[in-house]
């Protein structure tokens, strides 16, 4: 049923990752349906219940809030920001890389050398912190900041691919047979450079979750009391010695989510872009 290359790429572990991602997406859409409690409802008498307590499957935090419900609502925030930022990054980066690679010359200098290289001179989290300082924390700031700072990766990938595809004879043939520039860029080149971009999309979601949870761990992500995975880890850290579940549970969810998107990226790469070489 599945194409052979896809079947070969989907190892059992990657199927599990796929299932997990689907489950997370379902939770994102229908968090109110699944969440057993109001994620903001506090009850000090129920504070720091261990996992497995009746009605509180994953236990409660130091304010007596249900961890499972907070994770579910946290998934909404997390994935909204990650997907939003990644989409923005993909569109920006692909356009910039395509233009830089296709036109070369001054356009290339302005896009790749000035734009991309300057952004890549910062570790992503540092630039995000600069944005937070200037605009204050919040989902909007994060999506825009992360969208801009993940764009260079897409730009570099698209640029590199465009440079090599541009040399192929079918692009020259399109020119020779009179295809307009936009046709050549978007109908001839773009479809042929898309595989690594799709792969990068999945990997960037993983990176965005990593970065967002890091920022909210520092208290610089979304504004409390909105539940977020990173801030749950930060809160749990205070009770690490006695009630480690308050840290380990949200921590595990972050790890699993990043891992799942990373594994899907690996599967996509093996399926769509088997020749490429990457550390991720």
């Amino acid at each position: 049923m599945l194409p052979e290359r896809l079947r070969a790429a989907m190892t059992p572990l990657r199927w599990v990752a796929f299932g997990y991602v689907v489950a997370v997406l379902v939770v994102v859409v229908a968090a109110p349906v699944f969440a057993p409690h109001d994620p903001l409802q506090q009850d000090v008498s129920l504070r720091l219940l261990p996992p497995g307590t009746e009605g509180y499957l994953l236990g409660t935090d130091e304010l007596g809030r249900d961890i499972l419900s907070r994770l579910m609502y946290g998934a909404r925030v997390e994935l909204l920001i990650a997907l939003g930022a990644t989409l923005l990054a993909m569109v920006l980066g692909t356009l910039v890389g395509l233009a830089g690679g296709y036109f070369g010359g001054l356009v290339e200098v302005l896009t790749m050398r000035v734009g991309v290289d300057v952004l890549l001179a910062f570790p992503p989290i540092i630039l995000a912190l600069l944005a937070v300082t200037l605009r204050g924390p919040g989902a909007g700031t994060l999506i825009i900041a992360m969208g801009v700072l993940f764009a260079p990766t897409f730009a570099r990938i698209t640029y590199g691919q465009t440079i090599s595809v541009k040399r192929l004879e079918y692009v020259e043939a399109a020119t020779a047979f009179g295809a307009p520039t936009t046709t050549r860029m978007f109908q001839v080149v773009l479809p042929n450079v898309s595989a690594p971009i799709i792969v990068q999309f999945s990997l960037t979601i993983a990176n965005a979750v990593l970065l967002e949870s890091g920022l909210s761990y520092l208290g610089l992500g979304v504004v409390p009391p909105t539940p977020s995975w990173g801030s749950m880890v930060a809160q749990g850290q205070r009770y690490l010695a006695t009630e480690p579940h308050a840290l380990l549970v949200p921590g595990a969810v972050i790890v699993l989510t990043i891992l799942a998107f990373g594994l899907l990226g690996d599967a996509l790469r093996q399926w769509l872009d088997p020749k490429s070489r990457s550390a991720r």
Binding site: L168, E169, Y170, E172, A173, A174, A176, F177, G178, V188, P191, N192
Partner: peptide
């Protein structure tokens, strides 16, 4: 435009002269 109405071209490499997509 004039050239493209009157001249056409056959390329060298059969592996890459056709858009795979």
């Amino acid at each position: 435009h004039h050239i493209r109405r009157h001249v056409s071209m056959v390329f060298q490499d059969p592996a890459s002269s056709l858009n795979p997509r």
